[in-house]
Every structure is written in structure tokens, then in C-alpha cells.
């Protein structure tokens, strides 16, 4: 419960735009240090680079384990770019902003 609350707080604090070009799903398992670090890193990167034009959804596989199978999630955390364009994935706590920007094709190589 504590973990869920921590996660909910972290997710709720996200400054999501009502609509946006960028739709990002972040898969985590519980409110671990790694999960919270990934959420914080992602929020920071998006604020810096996407300027309100994004929406982040945090999915806790502890709560919805069937989604791990449905969406083929192996590594935790996994960030999935659902939009724009074809799906892209980044695994890890997103501590390296440059690889995240490259991986999401926010900036070109």
C-alpha cells in the first residue's frame, strides 16, 4: 500500500498535458527506488524537451501483471513510445538523458 501510494504520488505529480503528440507508457513494478527514479528522470526529460506536448502513463505490473504478457515487457523499467509513429522502447531507469532522447527520436542522431 505504501508502495502504491508512493507511486500514485509520483505519477500524480507528473505535469501531464491534457493532450499531446507524445504518448509514453512507463512500466514499473511497485514503488521501488528504481521506479521512482525512472519516473523522475522521465518527467525531467519531457519537461526539458517536449514542452507540455506529452502524456505519460505509469503502469504498475504488480497491479496489472497480465499487461506484462500482453505488452511483452521483460525488463523493468520499460518505457514505450506509443505515439508518434512506430513503437520504440527504452529499458532502464532513464538516467542517461541523451540515450533517452535518441531512443525516443526526440532528437536526431
Amino acid at each position: 500500500m505504501v508502495r502504491s501510494n508512493a507511486l500514485a504520488q509520483a505519477a500524480g505529480a507528473l505535469s501531464n498535458a491534457s493532450s499531446g503528440k507524445w504518448e509514453l507508457d512507463l512500466y514499473v513494478v511497485g514503488a521501488t527506488v528504481m521506479s521512482l527514479r525512472a519516473i523522475a528522470n522521465l518527467e525531467h526529460i519531457c519537461q526539458q524537451n517536449l514542452a507540455g506536448n506529452y502524456r505519460i502513463e505509469v503502469i504498475d505490473l504488480d497491479v496489472h501483471p497480465e499487461l506484462a504478457i500482453e505488452h511483452n515487457i521483460t525488463a523493468i523499467p520499460t518505457l514505450v513510445r506509443r505515439s508518434p509513429g512506430p513503437s520504440r522502447r527504452i529499458i532502464g531507469d532513464l538516467s542517461d538523458a541523451a540515450t533517452v532522447l535518441l531512443g525516443l527520436e526526440i532528437i536526431a542522431v
Binding site: 520504440r88 522502447r89 529499458i91 531507469d93 542517461d96 540515450t99
Partner: peptide, 9 residues
């Protein structure tokens, strides 16, 4: 289609 950034399990 997958990039690694930081630590994971």
C-alpha cells in the same frame, strides 16, 4: 527497437 538507458532488472 530497444535502447538501454541506465540500470534495470
Amino acid at each position: 527497437n530497444t535502447t538501454e538507458s541506465g540500470t534495470f532488472n
